[in-house]
Simulated scan of single mutants.
Amino acid sequence: MTRSLFLRELRLRLRGGGWAASLGLFVLACALAPLGLGRDEALLRAAGPGLLWLTASLSLLLGLDGQHEEDVRAGGLDLLRLSSLPLPVSMLVKMAAGWVSACLPLVLVSPVLLFAFGATPMQGAAGALGLLLGTPALALLAGTIGALCAGVRRGTGLLVFLALPLFVPCLVFGPAAAGEAPGAPLLLLGAFSLQALAICPFVAAGAIRAQTT
């Protein structure tokens, strides 16, 4: 049942096209950033990882927006609540599908964008690993806030307003992972994702349970 739910959610995300808009915004914003920063190679190398993470965060909110809306309209949340699968597990599966559709493409293209900013191959690999370790936390947080905002009209602005402050640890340690000493930032990004994994599915399940009672 977990596999069927994951494949259903993944199909919905891919069919909705939010992942394409998210990836397009990410690539376009990072490609245009050097035009505004100028051609100073040292400046581009220093600013690149921070711009990458900031753009990734905004792109993810675009790609993960509305991941509960289809269930709200079709009554899928009631079915999830009544199914034999524990509701926190169902929420985790939905968030995992959101990560695969919206975050994984960003992780895959990030080394190329870091190279464009002048990063070395080692820095590009560390930056991509940082995104791989940190974006699960972003997807879990966005999914949880999406569950809290499910059914709210024009919830996109509210989602962005509530989610961005929670993204601060990733925005602090993510760019540092592409620096000279990536070890500690990578460990902290992984710890942040593990912490979100331990908390967010239960908070999201509580929000959905409160809305369907």
Rank of each mutant, 00 (worst) to 15 (best):
M1G: 11
M1Y: 04
T2G: 14
S4L: 10
R11Y: 13
L12Q: 07
L12Y: 11
R15T: 13
G17A: 08
A20Q: 10
S22K: 00
S22C: 13
L23R: 08
L25E: 07
L25P: 03
F26H: 02
F26N: 00
L28A: 14
P34L: 02
L37G: 04
A42V: 09
L43N: 06
R45N: 03
R45G: 03
A46H: 08
A46Y: 01
P49V: 01
L51G: 01
L51A: 02
L54S: 13
L54V: 12
L54N: 00
A56W: 00
A56D: 04
S57L: 11
L58M: 10
S59V: 03
S59C: 08
L60N: 06
L64E: 05
H68C: 13
H68R: 11
D71L: 07
D71S: 13
D71F: 07
R73A: 15
R73D: 14
G76D: 08
G76C: 12
L79F: 14
L79W: 14
L80G: 11
R81V: 12
L82N: 10
L82K: 04
L82Y: 04
S83V: 04
L85E: 08
L87N: 05
P88V: 08
V89P: 05
A96I: 04
A96S: 15
A96P: 05
A97L: 12
V100K: 05
V100I: 15
A102Q: 09
A102L: 07
L106D: 06
V107C: 06
V109G: 00
P111S: 07
P111E: 05
L113A: 08
L114T: 01
A116R: 04
G118K: 02
A119G: 00
T120L: 09
P121A: 05
M122C: 13
A125W: 11
A126K: 03
L129T: 08
G130K: 07
L131I: 03
L132F: 09
L133A: 11
G134F: 00
P136S: 00
P136Y: 06
A137R: 03
L140P: 10
A142E: 06
T144Q: 13
I145R: 07
C149L: 15
C149M: 15
A150S: 14
V152C: 13
R153L: 14
T156S: 13
T156K: 10
G157T: 12
L158R: 14
L159A: 08
V160W: 08
L162W: 05
A163H: 14
L164H: 08
L166G: 12
F167K: 02
V168A: 15
V172Q: 03
F173M: 11
G174V: 02
G174M: 07
A177R: 01
L186R: 04
L186Y: 00
L188K: 07
L188M: 12
L189Q: 01
G190A: 11
A191Y: 01
A191K: 06
F192N: 03
S193N: 10
L194N: 11
L194A: 14
Q195I: 14
L197A: 15
A198M: 05
A198W: 11
I199K: 05
G206C: 14
G206I: 03
G206T: 01
R209L: 09
R209I: 01
A210Y: 10
T212S: 09
T212W: 04
T213S: 15
